[in-house]
Protein backbone atom coordinates (compact mmCIF):
# COMPACT_ATOMS: atom_id res chain seq x y z
CA UNK A 1 0.00 0.00 0.00
CA UNK A 2 1.42 3.34 -1.08
CA UNK A 3 0.81 6.28 1.26
CA UNK A 4 1.62 9.82 0.11
CA UNK A 5 1.16 12.98 2.15
CA UNK A 6 -0.70 15.60 0.10
CA UNK A 7 1.26 18.88 0.39
CA UNK A 8 -1.94 20.93 0.01
CA UNK A 9 -4.33 19.46 2.56
CA UNK A 10 -1.84 17.55 4.72
CA UNK A 11 -3.75 14.26 4.49
CA UNK A 12 -1.65 11.11 4.54
CA UNK A 13 -3.58 9.66 1.66
CA UNK A 14 -3.51 5.99 0.84
CA UNK A 15 -3.43 4.87 -2.76
CA UNK A 16 -7.20 4.62 -3.26
CA UNK A 17 -7.64 8.37 -2.64
CA UNK A 18 -5.03 9.16 -5.27
CA UNK A 19 -4.78 9.10 -9.03
CA UNK A 20 -1.40 8.60 -10.67
CA UNK A 21 -0.38 11.13 -13.31
CA UNK A 22 2.85 9.60 -14.61
CA UNK A 23 6.33 11.01 -14.89
CA UNK A 24 6.94 14.50 -13.50
CA UNK A 25 8.89 17.49 -14.83
CA UNK A 26 8.23 16.81 -18.51
CA UNK A 27 9.04 19.60 -20.91
CA UNK A 28 5.92 20.31 -22.87
CA UNK A 29 6.57 20.73 -26.60
CA UNK A 30 4.30 23.14 -28.40
CA UNK A 31 4.02 25.37 -31.47
CA UNK A 32 7.35 25.41 -33.29
CA UNK A 33 8.55 22.03 -31.98
CA UNK A 34 9.63 19.50 -34.61
CA UNK A 35 8.01 16.08 -34.99
CA UNK A 36 10.73 14.21 -33.10
CA UNK A 37 10.48 16.51 -30.09
CA UNK A 38 6.71 16.24 -30.09
CA UNK A 39 6.77 12.46 -30.35
CA UNK A 40 9.26 12.37 -27.48
CA UNK A 41 7.01 14.58 -25.36
CA UNK A 42 3.91 12.53 -26.08
CA UNK A 43 5.22 8.98 -25.86
CA UNK A 44 8.70 8.60 -24.39
CA UNK A 45 8.82 8.11 -20.65
CA UNK A 46 11.47 7.01 -18.22
CA UNK A 47 10.67 3.73 -16.49
CA UNK A 48 13.36 3.52 -13.85
CA UNK A 49 13.83 0.66 -11.45
CA UNK A 50 14.64 2.84 -8.45
CA UNK A 51 14.15 6.54 -7.76
CA UNK A 52 11.34 8.14 -9.71
CA UNK A 53 9.62 11.54 -9.68
CA UNK A 54 5.92 11.39 -10.41
CA UNK A 55 2.76 13.46 -10.58
CA UNK A 56 -0.18 12.44 -8.43
CA UNK A 57 -3.60 13.93 -7.89
CA UNK A 58 -5.47 13.88 -4.58
CA UNK A 59 -8.56 12.89 -6.56
CA UNK A 60 -10.75 11.66 -3.68
CA UNK A 61 -9.68 14.56 -1.49
CA UNK A 62 -8.73 18.20 -2.02
CA UNK A 63 -8.43 17.62 -5.77
CA UNK A 64 -4.96 19.11 -6.16
CA UNK A 65 -2.06 17.82 -8.27
CA UNK A 66 1.27 17.35 -6.53
CA UNK A 67 4.66 15.70 -7.00
CA UNK A 68 6.09 12.65 -5.26
CA UNK A 69 9.60 11.20 -5.10
CA UNK A 70 9.71 7.47 -4.45
CA UNK A 71 11.54 4.27 -5.25
CA UNK A 72 9.65 2.08 -7.70
CA UNK A 73 11.33 -1.07 -6.42
CA UNK A 74 11.09 -0.66 -2.66
CA UNK A 75 8.07 1.71 -2.61
CA UNK A 76 10.08 3.90 -0.21
CA UNK A 77 8.74 7.47 -0.33
CA UNK A 78 11.33 10.25 -0.15
CA UNK A 79 8.75 12.99 0.03
CA UNK A 80 6.03 14.95 -1.73
CA UNK A 81 6.14 18.54 -2.95
CA UNK A 82 3.84 21.10 -4.63
CA UNK A 83 3.13 21.12 -8.35
CA UNK A 84 4.26 24.70 -8.95
CA UNK A 85 7.90 23.87 -9.63
CA UNK A 86 10.07 22.70 -12.53
CA UNK A 87 12.37 20.62 -10.35
CA UNK A 88 12.33 18.96 -6.93
CA UNK A 89 13.16 21.26 -3.99
CA UNK A 90 16.44 20.86 -2.13
CA UNK A 91 14.98 18.95 0.84
CA UNK A 92 13.59 16.30 -1.51
CA UNK A 93 16.90 15.95 -3.38
CA UNK A 94 18.69 15.71 -0.03
CA UNK A 95 16.28 12.99 1.16
CA UNK A 96 16.91 11.00 -2.02
CA UNK A 97 20.70 11.36 -2.11
CA UNK A 98 20.97 10.51 1.59
CA UNK A 99 19.77 7.03 0.63
CA UNK A 100 20.91 6.87 -3.01
CA UNK A 101 24.17 8.87 -3.16
CA UNK A 102 24.64 8.26 -6.90
CA UNK A 103 21.28 9.71 -7.88
CA UNK A 104 21.05 13.10 -9.53
CA UNK A 105 18.13 15.04 -10.99
CA UNK A 106 20.14 15.68 -14.14
CA UNK A 107 20.78 12.00 -14.81
CA UNK A 108 17.17 11.16 -14.01
CA UNK A 109 16.00 13.76 -16.55
CA UNK A 110 18.36 12.34 -19.14
CA UNK A 111 16.96 8.83 -18.71
CA UNK A 112 14.49 9.18 -21.55
Amino acid sequence: MLILECPYCGVKAEETELHGGGQAHIKRETVGSDDDAFEHYLFTRANPRGVHLERWRHANGCGKWFHAARDTTTLEVFGTYPAQTFEPPKDIIDAITAKRPDWSFKNWQGAT
Binding site: C9, V11, T16, A59, N60, G61, C62, G63
Partner: peptide
Protein backbone atom coordinates in the same frame (compact mmCIF):
# COMPACT_ATOMS: atom_id res chain seq x y z
CA UNK B 1 -13.68 17.89 8.10
CA UNK B 2 -12.46 15.35 5.58
CA UNK B 3 -12.88 14.96 1.85
CA UNK B 4 -12.39 11.35 0.87
CA UNK B 5 -14.20 8.46 -0.72
CA UNK B 6 -17.02 6.38 0.76
CA UNK B 7 -16.75 2.97 -0.90
CA UNK B 8 -16.79 4.11 -4.54
CA UNK B 9 -18.26 7.61 -4.14
CA UNK B 10 -16.50 10.92 -3.55
Amino acid sequence: FRRTRLAQAA
